[in-house]
Nucleic acid binder design. Structure first.
Lengths: 195, 195
DNA sequence: AGGCTATCTGAACATACGTTCCTTTAAAAC
DNA sequence: GTTTTAAAGGAACGTATGTTCAGATAGCCT
């Protein structure tokens, strides 16, 4: 008994990714074996290599996809008429985007240590792009007089940390709706930068 | 050749903890073997069991110690005369305390997944105590009219995330001194809660 | 139906892991 | 000096890992 009936790379491939995403997020990359992933998918471990060259590539692919999608989501924002509007737009997009994919977010922040040096450099570069985009907004706000920010770079790190922290506690169907969370956080961010 | 000359549990014990702390923080608990820790210490892996019952206990101990020290640090704060002063005191203490032990902080946030269920529950309870303390400050500020906070619990999570995020980028001897970082963050926190 | 491609199984390889425990050596106690 | 305790070495145990690859089966195309 070798090939499973009904198997098709278009089906198994995404299943491998999904299983890896879920397991890596829950247990951590290093703690999850390829056999575990395979079991979740319903194949033997050797079959995974039809879909990924190796374990590290699987992780990198997940993390790269996440960052690419994040940057695309940000790029899809309409050009806001003012720095304050841009900041609000960014804030809401960040919370909404991340809330839709808790596992991917978790991995994106928790598994940097498990990337090979080259992969780490690639992901880090993408993260830097994202951070720089927020910093640009803050700088524009300072120049326009909309914001009172002592240090745009530090403020960028603070805001991103705050926003990303939503992922550690927010759950759909909880006490607060996503819209409420967005509003509360936007209110805090706005005030924190003096807008 | 069995016992190493000059060996003494008072020396080796702390070395084991220190090596584990450093290695877990850098590579992650699951990715670090006991042989690796032993190598760092300069003993064989079997010797580690003179100092810890097992690998999980080593991790738990590090994380528990961190939380105990954090709560002690917070308890040592003088009773502030007002909610605003309490919040400032908390903010500065959080940043200072965490900046002094980056590895322990990293582990405290990144290795929750690798705790056994009972250990996780114990650490989580301690984290909840700390969060509750900040939430109390915010609630007191709302009651006294010092703060304008829509949701103290959510604000608590936002502030802690922001403050803890300092650990991902702050380095002694960098562009900013710790005092400057404290001041910038306190300013943001103060404004974010409308104080 | 036959041939080719796709997709898996399952065994194996080389290596590694957490832990135990007997033996050895060093240090402390008497 | 002798005995007891301390602290290590080192081997082994039972198990696990990432990966490869030959062979087996399924699906597609002619």
């Amino acid at each position: 008994m070798a090939r499973t009936q009904g198997s098709h790379s278009g089906i198994t491939g995404p299943r491998v990714r999904k299983a890896a995403l879920t397991l890596f997020a829950r247990h951590g990359y290093a703690a999850v074996s390829m056999r575990q992933i395979a079991r979740d998918v319903g194949v033997q471990a050797g079959a995974l290599y039809n879909y990924t060259p190796d374990k590290q590539s699987l992780l990198f692919d997940l993390m790269k996809t996440h960052m690419d999608e994040l940057l695309a989501s940000r790029a899809a924002l309409a050009a806001p008429p003012s720095p304050a509007a841009a900041l609000e737009s960014f804030t809401r997009m960040h919370i909404r985007f991340h809330s839709e994919r808790p596992d991917a977010v978790f991995i994106a922040y928790m598994e940097l240590r498990n990337l090979s040096p080259e992969n780490f450099a690639a992901i880090e570069a993408l993260r830097r792009v994202y951070e720089d985009q927020l910093e640009e907004i803050l700088r524009a706000g300072v120049i326009s007089g909309d914001f009172t920010v002592a240090d745009p770079k530090v403020t960028t790190m603070a805001v991103i940390a705050m926003l990303t922290g939503v992922n550690t506690w927010f759950r759909e169907g909880g006490r607060l709706s996503l819209e409420e969370v967005e509003q509360i956080y936007w209110d805090m961010v706005r005030k924190a930068v003096g807008a």
